[in-house]
Amino acid sequence: MLLNSPAVEQLIEAFRRLPGVGKRSAERMAMHILSAPAQDAQLFSEAIQLARGRVIHCGQCRNLAEENPCRICTDQKRNHKLVCVVEQPTGAIAIEKGGSYKGTYHVLYGVLNPLDGIGPNELHFDHFFQRIQNDEVTEIIVATNATAEGEATAMYISRHFADSEVAVTRIAHGVPMGGGLEFTDNVTLSHALDGRTKIG
Rank of each mutant, 00 (worst) to 15 (best):
L2I: 13
N4V: 13
S5V: 10
S5E: 08
P6D: 14
A7H: 02
V8F: 04
E9M: 15
Q10G: 09
L11R: 03
L11E: 02
L11K: 03
F15K: 03
P19H: 13
P19I: 13
G20K: 12
V21H: 00
V21W: 01
G22P: 00
R24Q: 07
R24V: 06
E27D: 03
A30D: 03
M31A: 05
H32V: 05
I33D: 04
I33V: 15
L34C: 06
L34I: 08
D40I: 13
D40E: 15
Q42Y: 07
Q42W: 04
F44T: 05
S45A: 15
Q49G: 13
L50N: 02
A51H: 09
R52H: 03
R54E: 15
C58T: 10
C58P: 04
G59D: 12
Q60R: 14
C61V: 08
R62V: 09
E67Y: 15
E67P: 12
E67A: 15
P69D: 14
C70V: 03
C73E: 09
T74Y: 05
Q76E: 13
R78A: 09
H80N: 05
H80M: 05
V83M: 14
C84D: 04
V85T: 00
V86W: 02
P89A: 08
T90G: 08
A92P: 00
A92L: 10
I93K: 04
I93V: 07
I95Q: 09
K97C: 05
K97F: 04
G98E: 03
G99P: 00
G99Y: 04
T104N: 06
T104F: 03
T104W: 03
H106W: 04
V107L: 04
L108V: 05
G110V: 10
G110H: 09
G110Y: 09
L112I: 15
N113P: 00
G117L: 11
G117S: 11
G119T: 09
P120R: 12
P120K: 13
N121D: 14
L123T: 07
L123S: 10
F125Q: 01
H127C: 07
H127K: 11
H127S: 12
Q130S: 08
I132S: 02
I132T: 01
N134P: 00
E136R: 10
E139G: 11
A143T: 02
A143S: 06
T144Q: 07
N145V: 10
N145I: 06
A148G: 02
A148W: 02
E149I: 07
G150A: 06
E151W: 07
A152R: 02
Y156C: 07
I157R: 01
S158W: 06
H160I: 11
A162S: 13
D163G: 09
E165A: 14
A167I: 13
V168Q: 10
V168I: 10
V168H: 07
R170G: 00
R170P: 00
R170N: 01
I171Q: 00
I171W: 01
P176Q: 15
G180K: 08
L181C: 03
E182G: 06
F183T: 02
N186D: 14
H191F: 01
A192E: 05
A192N: 05
D194Q: 13
G195D: 06
R196P: 00
K198W: 08
G200K: 09
